[in-house]
Design a protein around this nucleic acid. Sequence first.
DNA 1: GTCTATAGTCTGATAGAC
DNA 2: GTCTATCAGACTATAGAC
Lengths: 197, 197
Amino acid sequence: MTTRIQRRNRSRILDAALEVFSQQGFRGATLDEIAAVAGLSKPNILYYFDSKDAMHRALLDALLDVWLAPLRALNPQGNPKQEIIGYMRRKLELSRDFPRESRLFANEVLQGAPRLSDEISGDLKALVDESAGIIQGWIDAGLLPQLDPYHLIFSIWALTQHYADFGAQIRLIRDGADPLEGADSYLETVFDRLLSV
Amino acid sequence: MTTRIQRRNRSRILDAALEVFSQQGFRGATLDEIAAVAGLSKPNILYYFDSKDAMHRALLDALLDVWLAPLRALNPQGNPKQEIIGYMRRKLELSRDFPRESRLFANEVLQGAPRLSDEISGDLKALVDESAGIIQGWIDAGLLPQLDPYHLIFSIWALTQHYADFGAQIRLIRDGADPLEGADSYLETVFDRLLSV
DNA sequence: GTCTATAGTCTGATAGAC
DNA sequence: GTCTATCAGACTATAGAC
């Protein structure tokens, strides 16, 4: 039986853990800091999650569903350019709405993806291979210019996630402005020009 | 007086520190691991650098010179498209030749740039403002299409650094192949199409 | 210059009172 | 469920022998 208070505390802890893990990485994060951010004692957060690792694992599992959803929505029957730009838009929305999740993922990959290699070489790779196949089909049908479909996908990741992962840098360069200001229309232009036949 | 052995040990330590800091971030890195990678004892590496912080600082200082050089080479008198593609190429070379430096920088910015905010809002911002001005001049002269020059610079950073920072992910998706395979010609195509008037 | 030993602090996790 | 108290180990850094 899970009470309202338990659910609230669990979600507070996960939110605090996301805050700290996404900024410091797994090893750099401490339970003390997570507990302080959550407003709970250290033994108490360990009552809800067995270990530091379990907290991190819970975050990664929740993250992957959200992270892979946009690519799953690619429709082989749709208009190629609109499908790809739509994918880019959904990824950019993730950077806007879930920047901490983006940084959590970035931290993991920077560290060599020690806790994500199974998911990346399994689910994600399969999904990317399938999507690259769809894009290559469009290219072969003359609906898109000649482009390496894998690099096309990587470049969408790079361009959209950059606004979340390097947001601190952009903010410092643009006098504190929202990093994503003007990003939508810029990236729209980029992919419109890139994908025109 | 600095001996040959001292210079060799200093550079061994810095190399080991780069290896560990770039993977684990500042707080996640430990002197034990740096010492082990360097093949020296922990007190010994602290004989060469006063503290963990001093090691990190030395790496950041060396990094910034290398990191900013390509943008400084932008020539207002040159051919606009070739200048920008040349800048992109030099940045991509940095990802190829100095992937650990790229990840060290990425780690810092992910953490909110606590040890780099002065350099970013000072030197780097000034350099970006100046470069954006040059690019805007080219646009106003009709030599480039209408594009936000700041986002153009950010997109060069995003696309080139992605191959170093997310190399682990790309390697897992592409069956262990060199992440940069095909990147040169792909990015050349991207910017050729983007910057044509 | 390099080592062993260790000081003093922080870390993840547990015990046990309430 | 939540707390205080605390453990064992890891951490940065220093002392002192050689």
